Amino acid sequence: MAKRTNALDRVLRGAGGPGVLDVLAERLSGSDLTTLLLEVMRRRAGSLTPADVLRRYGHDRFAAPAAIPFRDLRRAEDAALSALPAAFEPVVLSPVAPLGTCSVPATVDQNKVVSTIRNGEVAADPTNALALEAALRRRAAGGAEPVRLAAVQRVVRAQHVEGAARFAHFTLFALVTAGRDTGDLAFERQHAAEHLAVLADAVRACGAGEPEMRVTVLDERYERVAAGLGGTPDPGRRSGRGYYTGLCFKVYAGGAEVGDGGFTDWTARLLGNHKERLLVSALGLDRLAMTT
């Protein structure tokens, strides 16, 4: 954080002082800011040569092709989708989402997302976009009937990570189930078991062997939910606390983490109704393709 602050201070000094940031972030309307930034990028692109573009392509981790062979990844995509029950509707998501899709309903820092100059952001997590779609459908239909959606999407994450099976862009197989609280944790018990069953079938379909489910209870009331899942208790998990509510889980195959999921309050916040419930989960298909 200190390094980022120092860099921002340096840039602002060169641009005329901290007031510049206030104008851009707060005083200009969204459309006026877009107009300004479009002209900035038009001028910057106009100064580039073909050699400049090729040089950037050779060094830009966001633009480089995937490390996974196409046919291996395609087989994993097809295998995961083959495990999808008819109750889930596959959705073809856009490669961009509204600005704040990940940082506003959830707890993701906006700097971990590739923001665009048109008040949008490059897709970073299909579960967030599916949550928006599910919220619209829930608002239109009302009632307690759950909305089950799925997607396979290539996403980009801006934070720099090191190590094997860690990529700037990768493909996720994602599920969301949105509905209404029906009492006695019935929604939670039914749909947590359903998600874990689908994820387990998808891992097997990808040829990655028998998956291991590790379940973390974040609220003691969800002990009853965890008891019906049959996974390995994982009380020491650190990641996801504050992101998920009630209960979360990880999926492992061949000793590697390949999936994650849990309950969130996103649709409750999007719709302004504390009775709304949402379960999200996803598998990393690049990692699964590497294990087979």
Rank of each mutant, 00 (worst) to 15 (best):
R166F: 07
F167C: 00
F167D: 12
A168S: 14
H169W: 09
H169D: 11
H169Q: 12
T171Y: 07
T171C: 14
F173N: 05
F173G: 08
F173H: 05
L175D: 06
L175S: 06
L175W: 05
V176A: 10
V176L: 10
T177D: 11
A178W: 02
R180G: 10
R180Q: 15
D181R: 07
T182W: 01
T182H: 00
G183L: 13
G183H: 09
D184K: 07
F187S: 13
F187V: 13
E188K: 07
E188N: 08
R189D: 11
Q190M: 00
Q190S: 05
A192M: 12
A192R: 00
A192P: 00
A197K: 06
V198G: 04
L199M: 11
A200E: 14
A202V: 01
A202N: 01
A205G: 00
A205Y: 00
C206Y: 06
G207H: 04
G207T: 04
G209T: 10
G209Q: 07
P211C: 09
P211F: 08
E212V: 14
E212A: 13
M213L: 12
R214E: 11
V215A: 10
T216G: 06
V217S: 09
V217Y: 06
D219W: 04
Y222C: 15
R224M: 14
R224T: 15
V225Y: 05
V225E: 09
A226T: 00
A227G: 15
A227L: 06
A227C: 05
L229I: 05
P233F: 07
R237H: 04
S239L: 15
S239E: 15
S239D: 15
R241D: 11
Y243P: 02
T245R: 13
T245N: 06
T245C: 08
G246Q: 05
G246E: 04
G246L: 07
L247Y: 13
C248A: 14
C248R: 10
C248E: 15
F249Y: 14
K250S: 13
K250H: 04
Y252Q: 00
A253W: 01
A253L: 02
A253C: 05
G254A: 10
G254E: 06
